[in-house]
């Protein structure tokens, strides 16, 4: 049998692929290595040490920003996932009707609108509200993060729902389960991996956000990314590398969990 066209065996493909990986991973690798530099430079290696991790750990500003980031991400992710779950059920557990496609687009719009536009819009809106109410707490950041996290949480949940056989819910209703019990004993347990995936995706997206946060935050509401951005404008020390490395490990951990969850998804389908 003749082999069909396969991009992997075309000349140059391997080279290009290697080059792209190189471009992507070498800077990250360098960043991680220099996090362990004992000197003050991020370009000249002077020896191995944990001093910059210790420095970051002892830097109140870093710890505060980190705690704030995790707080915002956790609350925003939970609210966004709850809303996304309801939205996903409402948009999949219904017969198709005119306007349904519009709803999909509406939910996913934040993915299309340039982030900077959303940021400016929220800045204007929130500054008015701040004047009216006098409130200037973390609520604005949490609200903004919740808003742009919803579509990210929505996607895996909706995918999971669409793969779920409607007959299962019908079978449960047939076996005397009230609509609430159908949701509690059938839909929710089967949806759970999708919900967790959505939650983690939303968490990572929120943790990582800089544009909207930069515009919406009030004074003294630095998150880890905005703090780092501020520092980079001054002198750069391996402390930034150390913070980034911890950040990277955290993300890797979450992605790994995400991977195992989506694998268990496939197995049970």
């Amino acid at each position: 049998m003749r082999k069909r066209f396969d991009i992997r065996v075309q000349p140059g493909f391997a080279m290009i692929a290697m080059f792209c990986f190189f471009l992507l991973y070498v800077p990250i690798f360098t960043l991680v290595v220099y996090a362990f530099n004992s000197g003050i430079s991020i370009a000249r290696w002077e020896g191995f040490s944990f001093r910059w991790f210790v420095a970051a750990w002892n830097n109140n500003l870093v710890i505060e920003a980190a705690i704030r980031s995790v707080q915002i991400a956790a609350i925003a992710a939970i609210i966004a996932t709850a809303v996304a779950t309801l939205a996903a059920i409402a948009t999949t557990r219904t017969a198709g009707y005119r306007g349904l496609t519009f709803k999909y687009s509406f939910i996913n719009m934040p993915l299309m609108v340039p982030e900077i536009v959303t940021a400016v819009a929220l800045l204007i809106l929130f500054s008015r509200i701040k004047v009216w109410t006098g409130y200037s707490g973390l609520g604005y950041l949490i609200l903004a993060h919740t808003a742009f996290c919803i579509p990210f949480a929505y996607l895996p949940i909706r995918a999971r729902l669409e793969n779920m056989d409607l007959a299962l819910e019908r079978a449960a209703a047939d076996l005397y389960a009230t609509p609430f019990k159908v949701f509690r004993y059938i839909t929710l347990p089967l949806l759970w991996p999708g919900i967790l995936a959505g939650l983690m995706l939303a968490f990572v997206i929120s943790l990582d956000d800089i544009v909207i946060t930069e515009f919406v935050k009030s004074a003294g509401q630095e998150t880890l990314p905005t703090y780092m951005l501020g520092q980079l404008r001054r002198a750069i020390t391996p402390e930034m590398n150390a913070i980034s490395t911890v950040f990277l490990l955290l993300s890797l951990a979450i992605v790994t969990i995400f991977f195992f969850l989506s694998r268990s998804n496939e197995k049970s389908d």
């Binding site: 007959a167 299962l168 019908r170 079978a171 047939d174 609509p179």
Partner: peptide, 20 residues
Amino acid sequence: LPPFKRPVNTVFQNYALFPH
């Protein structure tokens, strides 16, 4: 009567067994 109140049960074409 809604389905969950009918004393009638169904064997579905593709069984619809609860996978979990």
